[in-house]
Structure formats: structure tokens, C-alpha cells
Computed example of a mutant assay.
Amino acid sequence: MSLTIDNREKQFPSDLDFLLHFQNVLLRAVEGARDEEIDREYSEMRAALLADPRYEETIPQFVHRHRDLGSLWPTLKSFSPQWEPRRVEVRRQFEPAIAEADRIDPFGVSPQQVWAGDLPFDSTAWTGATKPGARLAAVKTLLPVARAAVERLIESLGAPGHNGGPALDGTIEAIDALRSLHTLLGEIIQAADEGKLNQAYNDGMVLEACRYAKRAAKKLRDDPMPYAMSALLLSVLSACGFPGVGGFLGGVAANIKRKE
């Protein structure tokens, strides 16, 4: 079945999930991934995205221009002869669309609530360390611990009957988000060690890690202990100055309270 704007909602719980997945398809492509499956996935996701007028102004022009990965490859190569700068450029060009999706659905609230300004929290309530020195110290001290916690959480969620019963809906999606978060945290730690932390922030790597943490927490809301661990990870990320996490933590606290 082809991916359309209607059945997209069945496969992806939110626009943010959809766009992050589409971006990941392209991040694999810039590293040279080529097969029939990834090309079909790109073409179908591209068509579904172009059919959504909300993102018409924010979709990267290279997505508009190229129907398949074969025709897109020369453009991706033109970004840089090396794959890492290509990844940076893909993230940079996708940021406006992903930011719009993040604005529409910061914690599972409806678009109508967002447009009306009827949110239960301030999405800029807490940004943590903001000065370069404080950011560097927080990243070097806290992110290795957070990355180890993510690794342990992935192992726990992947173990049979981790919650004493059958796997809950969303666990597989949470593990996928946590794996992406684990990779990004490693890249941010490396950037800090190489004196390139500001570049990691400017390239959107830090903001993307925050979004994966939020995505994992949303998937685990019905699984109390992993959900609480996800909230703890978000607190650590906030302390490192990840933007926009404070409001999400407010939503986490409200959700935990409702379940008591």
C-alpha cells in the first residue's frame, strides 16, 4: 500500500515521527545506502510530504526537485565529498520542517490547542546551561552518564517481559528513538572533546537529540519505570542546555500525576 497523507497517520503517530524518519532515510542515503527498499521509502514519503500543504514552505528544495534517490545523489554529493558534512547539511535543511512539526505537537496536544495558545506549559520554561563554559562542563560531565543510561534502557526494553508482561504498544518505536539518541549523544560528546561543541549546537545535532528523547518518552507513557527513566534523561539534557525541553518536562510531570 502506498504511503498517503491519510494512511501516514496510521504508520506514524505524529508529524514529528514522520519527519524524523524521513530525515533518517536521507541520512542513510548520504552515506551511500542504495537499494530498492530505501528508494521506494524515500519516494513514498516524499509524495506524502509534498501533499501536505502545512509544510510546503519548509520542505528542503532538494526534496521538491528529486523524485528518487538516484536523481538526488548528485545533489547530496555536491554538499561535500565526505559523508559527515552531508549529514550536517541534510539536518540543517530539514530543521524548518521538523521545527514546525515540533511546534504543532510538543507533547501530544492537538494542533488546535497550539494555534490557540492553549498549552499547559511554557515550552521555553527552562533551557539549562546557556553560557559556553557551563554547556561544555555539563556536556562532559552529564552526557556520558546519560548515554550509558540510554544504553541500559535499550537493553531493558529489549529483554523479554521487561515490564512483567507482554510488550506494550510503542516499545519498538521507543527503542528506535533511543538508539538514534544514543548515537547522537556520542557525536555530541565527541564534538565537545574536539572543541566543536558550539558547532554541534549550531548544526542542530543537540536539538535533534532532544527530539529523540522526547519521542522515546512519549512512546513509553504507559510503561511506568522506563517512562520515569526517560523523564530523568530529559532532565539531564535540559541541564546541558538543550532548548525547549523544559515545557516537555512540565507535560511529563502532569502525565505522571494523572496516572497516580
Rank of each mutant, 00 (worst) to 15 (best):
E56T: 14
E41T: 15
T58M: 08
A51E: 15
F62T: 09
A97V: 15
R40M: 13
W115F: 01
S78N: 12
Y42N: 06
V109E: 15
F121D: 01
K77V: 08
A47E: 12
I104N: 00
T124H: 01
A129T: 01
D105C: 12
P132L: 02
L50I: 13
V90D: 12
H64S: 01
I98G: 03
R67S: 13
I38M: 08
S71M: 02
T124M: 01
R91C: 06
P106H: 05
Y42W: 09
I38D: 08
Q113C: 04
R92N: 08
G117L: 01
P111K: 02
P60L: 11
P111H: 02
W115C: 00
D122N: 15
Q113R: 14
A97N: 04
W115H: 00
L72W: 07
E56G: 08
P132G: 03
R103G: 00
R46D: 06
L49M: 08
P60Q: 08
P53Y: 13
R46V: 05
A97F: 10
Q61M: 07
Q112L: 10
F79Y: 15
A99H: 06
A129V: 02
M45V: 03
P85Y: 14
S43W: 04
G70E: 06
A101W: 06
E36N: 13
S78A: 15
W73L: 11
P81M: 05
D122T: 09
A134K: 04
T127L: 07
I38C: 06
F121E: 11
P120G: 11
P111Q: 02
S71D: 11
D122I: 10
P53C: 11
A48N: 07
R54V: 11
F79N: 06
P60R: 12
W83P: 10
I38W: 08
A125E: 15
V90I: 15
P106Y: 07
R46C: 06
P81F: 05
V88F: 11
P111L: 03
P111N: 01
E100F: 09
P120S: 05
R91P: 07
S110G: 01
E56S: 14
W73Q: 14
T58G: 04
P74I: 03
T127E: 13
P53A: 14
V114F: 09
R103E: 05
D52Y: 09
R86L: 07
D52T: 14
V90G: 09
R92L: 11
G133Y: 02
P74D: 00
I98T: 09
P81Q: 07
Q113D: 14
S123C: 04
T127D: 14
G128M: 02
T58L: 09
A101G: 06
P85N: 13
K77D: 09
G108H: 09
P106V: 06
P85F: 13
K77E: 12
V88P: 00
P96F: 08
V63A: 06
E100I: 07
P96K: 02
E41S: 13
R86Q: 10
A134V: 03
S71Q: 11
I38V: 15
M45G: 02
R86V: 04
D68M: 03
Q93P: 04
R92A: 12
P60K: 11
M45E: 07
